[in-house]
């Protein structure tokens, strides 16, 4: 405990951090709360001298708004579909990486590359892969296809319009799932691989002495011992999933949907950005707070479920 005579010194030394936190974290949070509870708040209007009533109108508007529910739906679908897939894949890849000796470092690097690559750039590459490239003016149809469709055609299937004009919501979501899973893998593999490498090898020797089959080693020893890392990866995966935005911009552009149906794939964060652009900060703040509450509830729920399965 600092001597009370010198307490001002403690505050002085802490002040740079405190000031930065106040300006860039505490004030924005407070301001978000304030704007959310001022009916119809907008910055421009506020500067023009308009006054706003205190109330929950912003929240009601957000909830009543059809598009918001669509955003919620898209976000939820992406979360629920991608987190289990990417976690399972990451686990299998991490276990495989951990069990090979030659080229381990090289493969680790390859698997980690997406993590250090800009997600918009990755999105553009994916967009090209799923795109229908080129247009045949004579027959008035697209005649050059992206690599995914080329592969499908090679095996005798028919090309699908994944992200272009006339594509279905299901096709769009499928592309997003592939992209998000791929993008989420490196971080998860890194965490799980670190976890695997910290497991004492003697557990595996002990299992070997007892003649434990490989599958049983994975389910009864590796996964339980990895459970704290798995829990971390799942929880952060859900949180990241609810904040999904830039990946969709990466593939579909700021329209957040195929050309003929802009906004179809909009997410909650997208909704917040849209509202900000239209100078409806009150609405945006209310949306952000609702998103916060949803993430909070989901995380608490995750924690509760996972706690039962994390063993120590």
């Amino acid at each position: 405990m600092v001597d009370s005579k010198h307490q001002w010194k403690a505050w002085l030394y802490l002040s740079p951090a405190i000031i930065l936190l106040l300006v860039f974290t505490v004030w924005p949070i407070f301001n978000t709360l304030r704007m959310a509870f001022l009916n119809g708040y907008g910055n421009m209007a506020a500067m023009g001298g308009a006054t706003f009533q205190f109330g929950i109108e912003n929240f009601l508007k957000v909830i009543e708004y059809d598009k918001f529910l669509d955003c919620l739906k898209t976000t939820a679908i992406l979360c629920v579909a991608t987190v289990p897939i990417s976690t399972t894949l990451a686990l299998l890849i991490a276990v495989a990486l951990n069990s090979i000796k030659p080229l381990q470092k090289t493969l680790q690097t390859i698997f980690f590359l997406p993590y250090v690559t800009n997600s918009i750039a990755i999105g553009m590459v994916f967009a090209t892969m799923f795109n229908i490239v080129g247009y045949n003016p004579v027959e008035k149809v697209a005649d050059t296809w992206g690599i995914i469709n080329n592969v499908i055609q090679f095996f005798g299937g028919e090309g699908i319009s994944w992200i272009n004009q006339g594509s279905t919501y299901t096709a769009n979501i499928a592309v997003m799932i592939v992209y998000i899973v791929w993008n989420a893998l490196p971080f998860k593999i890194l965490i799980l691989l670190g976890g695997l490498q910290s497991i004492n090898k003697q557990y595996y020797d002990a299992a070997k002495v007892d003649g434990t089959p490989k599958a049983r080693v994975l389910t009864r020893i590796t996964i339980p011992l990895l459970s704290p890392m798995l829990a971390y990866v799942i929880i952060t995966g859900f949180i990241g999933g609810f904040k999904e935005y830039s990946s969709i911009v990466g593939i579909f552009g700021e329209k957040m949907g195929p050309p003929d149906d802009a906004g179809r794939l909009n997410t909650m964060v997208g909704f917040v950005y849209d509202a900000l652009e239209k100078d409806r900060q009150g609405l945006a703040s209310a949306g952000a707070l609702i998103l916060f509450v949803i993430i909070l509830v989901v995380t608490l729920f995750n924690n509760k479920v996972i706690k039962k399965h994390v063993h120590y």
């Binding site: 004492n200 003697q202 557990y203 020797d205 002990a206 002495v209 009864r220 020893i221 339980p224 011992l225 459970s227 063993h311 120590y312």
Partner: peptide, 13 residues
């Protein structure tokens, strides 16, 4: 064989 490891290697979970 039965093997007892130096640090026992009991499964902690």
């Amino acid at each position: 064989i039965g093997l007892v490891f130096q640090n026992y290697a009991l499964y902690p979970h």
